[in-house]
Nucleic acid binder design. Structure first.
Lengths: 202, 202
DNA sequence: ACCTGAACACCGTTCAAGT
DNA sequence: ACCTGAACACCGTTCAAGT
């Protein structure tokens, strides 16, 4: 019964199924993932090192998918390219954001992306002790918009009368175009602010 | 044996213990919380509606503690006041951020804070369909800096050589003052951008 | 009204046993 | 090398039983 001639699992299969499971909205977990793959939970441990490793695997796989090649160019092109990529990733897979937020990043590919961003900022003249903060801001901006795209009517759920919030939430058709426009404006603001900050430093 | 003459639990006791537990870094959960309170897990359900309700209770209690009175003033004062308050909250309790992020906000006090911010933006002339996005950005900015303050050397953990990131992480003494300065600069950038955006709309 | 203790369905993880 | 099945310690939640 055990061990069919052709393998049932692989790291890639697990990663893809994990992403699908998270996207579906069902509660994410090792057991549910095994169920989805038609396999016993313990089988997964032949390929992967537990739940956290699976989550890191999802980050890695999505990173590779949304950044098939390194973002290059001037520092501002790297910033906008990276933020736009992250935003598409989070917009397409908003439900993985709560899963990965706050978890340590180890995947070499993803580390490489942040490293190139940090290098570009250093090369552009940003003082060392501010680079990490700026990278974090850039990341937070993308995550924030990803979460916003997810479903704003689930972020705030007023149980008492409100002056403005309740009306805005019900009014918000929440079209992708409108959110896209707001995102681009915010990104321009971000880059303009960084540019200003750089000029003052030189 | 059960039911001592004086109650062992109350909503406030549970909330405070939950915050302490989360801050301690031990894995957060109903069982661990009950253990900390010297009580059976099922006892908690006489006062509180389960794990998610406890987390929302933590948000409520911390919100009341860090915003003892409503933030008032012009829209920009409300923005800066709210962001600074949120940032102090997240900086003092960084480990609750992963717990609350992405979870629906229902607490009337916290809803009220966001409602006042939204109202101020509407009054200042921000178009309805952009207010929610801006509120989300403001929130993401505070959360991002809260996470950043937590422990940056745990966010990125390079396993391969890096050009810049590894050096910055080891160099970053990560003093509170330096992070404070970066936060204030970023906040000024944020408000300046919003102000510019408002002028163009009028 | 408030707490216990038993029970339930479910976690994530380990490991011996099979091929 | 890869999968199963049993086992483990642990979840969150419900509920009858006690005072």
């Amino acid at each position: 019964m055990p061990r069919p001639r052709v393998n049932l699992l692989s790291v890639d299969l697990i990663a893809d199924a994990a992403i699908e499971l998270a996207d579906s909205g069902d509660t994410f977990g090792v057991n549910a993932l095994a169920r989805k793959l038609g396999v016993t939970p313990s089988s997964l441990y032949n390929h992967v090192d537990g739940k956290d490793a699976i989550i890191e695997l999802m980050r890695s796989r999505l990173g590779a998918r949304y950044f098939p090649e390194p973002v290059t160019g001037d520092w501002d092109e790297i910033v906008t390219g990276t933020v736009r990529g992250l935003r598409r990733l989070y917009a397409d897979h908003p439900l993985i954001v709560p899963l990965i937020v706050g978890k340590t990043i180890t995947d070499p590919g993803v580390i490489g992306s942040y490293d190139r961003l940090a290098t570009a900022l250093v090369d552009a003249g940003v003082p060392d002790d501010e680079v990490l903060a700026i990278v974090a801001i850039v990341d937070a901006y993308a995550i924030g918009f990803g979460l916003d795209l997810a479903s704003p009517d689930e972020i705030w759920q007023p149980t008492v009368p409100t002056a403005t919030l309740g009306r805005l939430i019900t009014d918000a058709a929440h079209g992708a175009e409108r959110s896209d426009a707001a995102f681009e404006i915010g990104l321009e603001m971000l880059v303009a602010s960084l540019r200003l900050r750089l000029q003052n430093r030189r």
